[in-house]
Design a protein around this nucleic acid. Structure first.
Lengths: 113, 113
DNA sequence: CCTTTTATATCGGCCGTCTATATATTCAGT
DNA sequence: ACTGAATATATAGACGGCCGATATAAAAGG
């Protein structure tokens, strides 16, 4: 069974910002790194990532600049802004709250039986 | 800051099924119990829950029956089916995979700096 | 008597993600 | 030299989950 896609919603922006915390990256690189760092759990699609990056740029959470390509098309690098870092910390806190609450519901259930 | 809604997607069906693991429940009751068990993190809306329950019933994951109301309108109770229980276990496994992968991305980042 | 609470239900819309498609370049195989 | 795969970015259309607004209905409380 493939990972339920409907479970995988809303956190991609957070994960992308997180990747940029380690240094500037270009889109294709983020897809591969996210795949690697998640032990092949996340298969972020190009059709999801690029519009997402454009949205983050519009909101001022990342800035973009052109870089030379080692191979293929020229690369577009993204850098985390100060506001992007702040947004990341908020999203991380929200994620932790959410995950903790799910854990409570999943674990707290059968105990009182 | 309110809990980011876009982070709270896709897992509601799982949580509702989980609530029914402890015994039959009616809709309004689930809203309150989910709120309580999540320490006020989840505010499941009626407009979300009832269509969700109808969908679960169509898929054969729950069955419904009318019950007498202590007050107000008659209550519609829901019971977890065998297939519903199996679906729940799958969703729990998927959630654990997902949450673990997010954790890896969030924690594995700054370490190699 | 009117508002709140209990309780179920539907509709329209927003937003995040996916699939499919397009474009452009380089490298490996034949 | 030609072809396909990989690299790399981009957009459009569709789908599905969740929410806000709204409707209905009955009992409890002020």
């Amino acid at each position: 069974m493939e990972l339920d896609k409907s479970l995988v919603s809303g956190s991609m922006a957070m994960l992308v910002l997180k990747l940029l915390e380690d240094g500037d990256k270009y889109g294709y690189q983020m897809i591969e790194e996210l795949r690697r760092r998640s032990d092949d759990t996340f298969h972020l699609k190009a059709g999801t990532l690029y519009p997402l990056l454009h949205g983050l740029e519009e909101k001022g959470l990342v800035t973009a600049y052109e870089g030379e390509a080692a191979a293929g098309k020229p690369r577009r690098y993204y850098r985390l802004t100060k506001r992007g870092g702040a947004a990341l910390r908020e999203k991380e806190a929200a994620w932790n709250d959410y995950a903790r609450a799910v854990g409570r519901v999943l674990e707290g259930g059968a105990c009182l039986a």
